[in-house]
Design a protein around this nucleic acid. Structure first.
Lengths: 104, 104
DNA sequence: CAGTCACATAAGCATTCACTTATGTGATAC
DNA sequence: GTATCACATAAGTGAATGCTTATGTGACTG
């Protein structure tokens, strides 16, 4: 079950921080490490988990490997979330507002 | 950091199954166990984790404790998701569609 | 082709996690 | 009051997790 891999991947704060960094655009593993107090193998292992969960895509460029956010995994989280839309009394409006902001 | 508690809580498939069951409405711990092959202490521990993450609320009724979905935690997941809205090329329309469905 | 760079993989280890059995607690039933 | 029911908590255990150091691999560099 891929859903389980996604949520397990997101359970680690370091991996969520990696995803955060990738919102700024595509980055290679070394660039991701900057300012993160994490060893090279640890980063490599985290990226492997994120990739396995469909949250990140890799793109080899010579001896560098560029990583970027993969919408695939995030879309599954969004879909999972919609199951609970009945329990969104007022906050659903916040989500609507955010979607409107995106139109600009 | 509450965000970390939420994602850690959601990382377990049994806990996500519990949330799924609660979409049908409020249930007590024993009712939640039905058809789930889980011991009473295990269920109690899972519910404690979900409650700690703000994903579930409890409501004592005599010697029963009714649990229901808490929108608080789910709203934080939704807010976290919006950070990645730029990486949602076509799928964002699916989310819009779902929001429209809710208006009916 | 020898060296270095960027990254992946292997193996070991400490911590965390989800479970178990046993026991505690507070409320209803008799 | 005593028994029972619904649930919580304690303590222990095996498996999973995230890290470490060491080594492997493939690509550029001189």
């Amino acid at each position: 079950m891929i859903e389980n891999e996604i949520f397990k991947a997101l359970a680690d704060p370091t991996r969520r921080a990696i995803l955060d960094k990738l919102t700024a655009g595509s980055l290679n593993a070394s660039a991701l490490r900057e300012g993160m107090a994490i060893s090279q193998p640890a980063m490599s292992q985290h990226l492997a988990v994120l990739r396995g969960a469909g949250l990140v895509r890799e793109e080899r460029q010579g001896r560098f490997v560029n990583y970027r956010v993969d919408p695939e995994g995030l879309a599954l989280v969004a879909r999972w979330l919609t199951k609970y839309r009945a329990f969104w009394p007022a906050r659903i409006d916040d989500l609507r507002t955010l979607l409107k902001e995106m139109d600009q």
